[in-house]
Design a protein around this nucleic acid. Structure first.
Length: 480
RNA sequence: GGGCCGGUAGCUCAGUCGGUAGAGCAUUUGACUUUUAAUCAAAGGGUCCCGGGUUCGAGUCCCGGCCGGCUCACCA
């Protein structure tokens, strides 16, 4: 690799330029530089005639015989520099012309407005802060190659301001979520990433080995069981926003490590969570994006509340006919075939119904929709509805045809919980989390809980069609 | 995992019927004191993803592989 690079013509030229600059008294990798302000702040506080110090990467350069214009970018904004031979003197001006696109410099000068009206720093002196040995992508197409963008995110961020903008929004959203929850008395906690039993969800975990104890451990697939143990302990409003790891395929909406927000509130239920999420999403949309309508995957999504709520069975009837639940299995299968939904042999009526829901109905729910009162078979860890033991008291929030957040009135009956774990363990041979069950036996108050896929939320808010566009370093196969 | 599409200069992309590898930007040299896709003149720059095959001759055709994108399926 380094061999290839050293043979690169561009790199060699830049090393030569670097040597000439060093010979002229400009060390290639300089010291800290104290600037007056970031470039976006300089734009905001522009005042003709004021002396300023600024720094950043040279992203454009227009050299003329006795003067030059350049644009500096420090990640916050661009700012134009005017460089004049009669101000700097022959030697310093000549050295400036040795700079390459991509070099990082610090300048001192006076703020002026050019003939074309652009705020500019007319520099009186400059210093080299860091030499760039590799050339930047082309100036108006930027870096397009998707693979290179993900593999070399630094370059992507330099070349594509839109990308920088998305990740600044990501930070802003996460900060705002924390502030929103903190202000309402929720404690942010951290629970184990390395777990001996990977519980709280049904997913294949990553494994690791812990040498000191000589045991295999799992990367967590969800923090749920630990957070509920904190509810038992009396932390009655907790949340964790952190990474989960699932050892499954990757595609446009799945990355093996992803960020989930889980929130639990004692003495609440799924209704509590319903109010919380509507309030929170509205707040994010208004304060960070200044709008309530978002373009996502070809649809316009309106986040104005209240969002539609519909019971699962009503939704099915709406799409498949008011008499759907009076039909026979054969009739249901026939309908599935008509809708081109593949049905495996041996499925019962409920499974066929859900398969049709999954393949044809869920994707059609573009505007935010809470689906409530799900069949208990679909959601094993929730309390049932007070008026119907066959249904669970939960919602699934669907936006843009995608599941964004499930919420439950959490199961707090330890005997029932044990029964369900045992059934589940029979199926996949998994272990039962006894410590969690012991905690439940001390009594967990009625609790509302919710999980939000932060990456998918960000896809929606930033109009990104791929999860890789909202994760700085998405998982890729090694190139070699 | 299946299907389709893509990988050519640092970047963005062309490349016809199989016949000497192309453009713009970038780079180098020269001119140029208000440019902003600066301009003008000239020059240099290639493991055509990798490995086989067909052919007098392969960026191009065939086979295999790698990486990526889209999509379907699987998993949940």
């Amino acid at each position: 690799m380094s061999q290839e690079l050293s043979e690169n013509e561009y790199r060699n030229q830049r090393i030569q330029n670097m040597e000439q600059l060093e010979a002229a008294g400009y060390p290639a990798f300089g010291k800290a530089f104290e600037r007056t302000a970031r470039l976006d702040e300089l734009h905001a506080s522009f005042e003709e005639g004021r002396g300023v110090k600024a720094c950043g990467r040279i992203v454009a350069m227009r050299k003329m015989g006795k003067m030059a214009f350049a644009h500096l970018n420090d990640g916050s904004a661009k700012f134009q520099l005017m460089v004049k031979k009669d101000i700097l003197g022959d030697e310093i001006f000549a050295a400036f012309k040795l700079l390459d696109l991509g070099d990082i410099i610090g300048v001192e000068g006076e703020m002026i407005v050019t003939q074309t009206g652009e705020p500019t720093i007319r520099i009186a002196s400059w210093t080299l802060l860091s030499k760039a040995l590799l050339p930047l992508p082309e100036k108006w197409h930027g870096l397009q190659d998707v693979e290179t963008r993900y593999r070399q995110r630094s370059l992507d961020l330099i070349a594509n301001p839109d990308v920088m903008e998305v990740f600044k929004k990501r930070t802003a959203v996460m900060r705002a979520i924390r502030a929103y929850l903190d202000a309402r008395g929720y404690y942010e906690v951290e629970t184990p990433m390395l777990q001996q039993i990977a519980g709280g969800a049904a997913a294949k975990p990553f494994m690791a080995h812990y040498n000191a104890l000589d045991i295999d451990v799992f990367m967590r697939i969800a923090p749920e069981l630990y957070l509920k143990r904190l509810i038992v302990g009396g932390m009655d409003r907790v949340y964790e926003m952190n990474r989960n790891f699932r050892n499954e395929g990757l595609d446009r909406t799945h990355n093996p490590e992803f960020t989930a927000l889980e929130i639990y509130q004692a003495y609440g239920d799924m209704r509590t969570m319903q109010e919380l999420i509507q309030g929170m999403f509205t707040h994010l949309a208004e304060t960070i994006f200044g709008k309530m309508e978002f373009e996502w995957m070809g649809n316009t999504i309106d986040l104005r509340t209240p969002w539609r709520e519909v019971a699962y069975h009503d939704l099915i009837r709406e799409h498949l006919g008011a008499d759907w639940f009076e039909r026979s299995l054969e009739e249901a299968v026939a309908k599935a075939e008509e809708l081109e939904v593949f049905i495996e042999k041996g499925m019962d009526f409920k499974q066929v119904t859900h398969e049709i829901y999954d393949k044809t109905i869920e994707g059609s729910l573009i505007q935010p929709t809470f689906i409530t009162r799900l069949p208990k078979e679909l959601v094993p860890l929730a309390n049932h509805c007070p008026d119907d033991p066959d249904l669970v008291d939960v919602f699934e929030l669907i936006i843009g045809g995608k599941e964004i957040a499930p919420a439950y009135s959490e199961l707090n009956n330890p005997l029932e919980q044990r029964k369900r774990f045992e059934e589940q363990a029979k199926g996949d041979g998994g272990k039962i989390d006894e410590e969690f069950l012991v905690a439940l036996e001390y009594g967990m108050p009625p609790t509302g809980g919710m999980g939000i896929g932060i990456d998918r939320l960000l896809m929606l808010l930033t109009g990104s069609d791929a999860i890789r566009d909202v994760i700085l370093f998405p998982q890729l196969k090694p190139k070699s």
